[in-house]
Write a protein that binds this DNA or RNA. Structure first.
Lengths: 339, 339
DNA sequence: TTGTATGCGTTATCAG
DNA sequence: CTGATAACGCATACAA
């Protein structure tokens, strides 16, 4: 290891005490201007860097937060992370990223490593396989935790999500407004609340518009192009294929569009399509695909704000639990625009 | 602050010394099995978590690395980060992410904060505005630095990049092989080596095929759809518009395709197009766009390996400098496939 | 096999 | 305004 320069080295060079050096470095009011300048220039000369490790050990604050997401390289999650980072950096916080790979065991491990690292807070979106939440409930007594997007209902944990129910409702309603009655839904993994909520929104929108649910029109999918293609094949084997598709995933929606095109079924004239997440590609297609935007940047920024509030209020001994619900944004594009 | 449980609490509870607790926790060979079990169960009972801060302060190793990228939410960078994370996590390392926003001043700040955090190494892709590299040369004496993709030539700093020259050469050659002679290039920001190299590859491919450079065919762009559209408009005002376009950016390539389609110019019959980066959307288009893949996952993993090697070799006092150059992968799709 | 003492680099407290 | 000292939580050299 390279031996690092400490305040002690500076104090020796200047023949003053380490305490004074520390104070000068921290711009303490009761240190003479002259000493401050002396210390600062000596620090520069010796190429001194502060050891935040020692600082943190002393203060009990690391100015670091952890984020646990299933995967970092998805448009949605990386945008949320960016939002958190940009909101927190000006406050002197650093961000540690972990991936759970949708595996609850890895999630547990990451969580405990973050606790070991003494992070001042943890942002997380649970994995698909997270059913038992003991590890999270346990962690929450150690450090504030904030769920974003994929949450679990745990007392004392703040959450920042979008209104997936409303999103599902609006998307479905929009398709109905285009004159469609045979609206089907490509259903996401029900182990996650978000997909259940989108589904519920779909169901209620049908009901409110006097449309009976056709169970053949609900097809479970993974978020992939292939599953969209498969689902479409299944649907067009039915006696009465649909005239509208609300997919809980943009990738599946893309698969739908590809398969329909291959079969010379016209979008939106024969079938309207809307996806979910507003992935970049949806707007770039020759036939742009409608989608629901989850405003990940805002979600990240608000999550960060909730954390900062928590930190402040906690100093005055108050413990809070915030539930922020953001509004989904419909982006209506060619794939569902008949009028 | 919640007062945290320490080895001292365990030692008091068990009436043994803190040193013994520490050793038991670390599975020291000379501690009796009985004591170990006692300590472990007491630790569980008290909900003890190790303070890695103190550990790091003592050992001089934090098991943390930093990554500085212009933006985290781009397909390329988030994939590299994912690669690094996945390679390093099994070795017990954590990853701290910073964004420079293409701003050298922010980059400097991030760099120094990472140094303060005593990271064991730093991975970085320099910002566009990074000309003076004193801050990096300075940092390299404190901790190992590894450049990926966007590098600067600094002695003693290992780099992992793709062969952008070759990529530019191959892409251009491919267009020529399709029968095109009027090949133009949408040129990226020359402050970055990568774009200079792609350009050089383009130039040499022209030369080697006996094509004279037409300076009107080289148009500087930012990586955006709009710039691709603008460039196309300019090109088609020329007396002799091109019959092939090699864009240093997929987004600009997309703009090109959109603008050409709006003007009923056929791809690839009238014009062939190839982009760069293999952004997800390129393969999803109705007319899929050819592109050059930078294998970001591999780049991340190799960067991590270079770091790990460095850590190991450095223990034996050897200092190394590795220059890894990866092969670009051409993905030839409809937009440039004539044969 | 276990205990004692010390130091990692910093800051806060108490003197002066 | 500045100095001496203790403490943050842990690991290790040295003793026992």
């Amino acid at each position: 290891m390279k031996k690092s320069v400490t305040i002690y080295d500076i104090s020796k060079k200047l023949n003053i005490s380490a305490a004074t050096v520390s104070r000068a470095l921290n711009n303490h009011p009761k240190i003479s201007q002259k000493t401050k300048e002396l210390v600062l220039s000596a620090a520069k000369e010796l190429n001194y860097i502060q050891n935040t490790l020692a600082q943190s050990l002393k203060s009990g604050k690391t100015n670091r937060v952890g984020i646990i997401v299933p995967y970092i390289n998805s448009s949605f999650f990386s945008s949320v992370i960016r939002g958190i980072e940009e909101e927190l950096t000006p406050h002197g916080y650093h961000v540690i990223i972990c991936q759970s790979h949708e595996d609850v065991n890895l999630e547990k491990k990451q969580l405990s490593t973050l606790l070991n690292a003494q992070v001042d807070g943890i942002f997380m979106s649970v994995s698909k396989t997270t059913e038992d939440t003991k590890h999270i409930e346990n962690a929450k007594s150690k450090t504030p935790i904030i769920f974003f997007d994929r949450k679990k209902d745990i007392a004392g944990i703040s959450t920042v999500v979008i209104d997936d129910y409303k999103a599902g409702y609006l998307a479905t309603e929009h398709l109905i407004e285009q004159g469609c009655r045979k609206v089907c839904h490509l259903l996401g993994d029900l182990r996650l609340e978000i997909y259940q909520n989108r589904y519920n929104g779909y169901l209620d929108a049908l009901k409110d518009n006097g449309i009976l649910l056709n169970k053949d029109y609900v097809i479970p999918i993974e978020s992939s192009v292939e599953d969209g293609i498969e689902a479409t094949k299944k649907l067009w084997k039915l006696a009465s294929p649909p005239d509208a598709i609300f997919s809980a995933s943009d990738y599946a929606a893309l698969g739908v569009c590809q398969e329909l095109r291959n079969n010379n079924i016209r979008i939106p004239q024969d079938v309207t399509v809307i996806g979910f997440s507003n992935e970049p590609f949806t707007q770039y297609m020759e036939l742009p695909i409608s989608s629901v935007d989850q405003t990940p940047d805002i979600m990240g920024k608000i999550s960060a704000q909730v954390f900062l509030e928590y930190i402040n209020e906690n100093f005055s001994g108050i413990s809070i639990e915030k539930k922020v619900v953001l509004n989904p944004q419909l982006y209506i594009r060619e794939s569902s625009k008949r009028k």
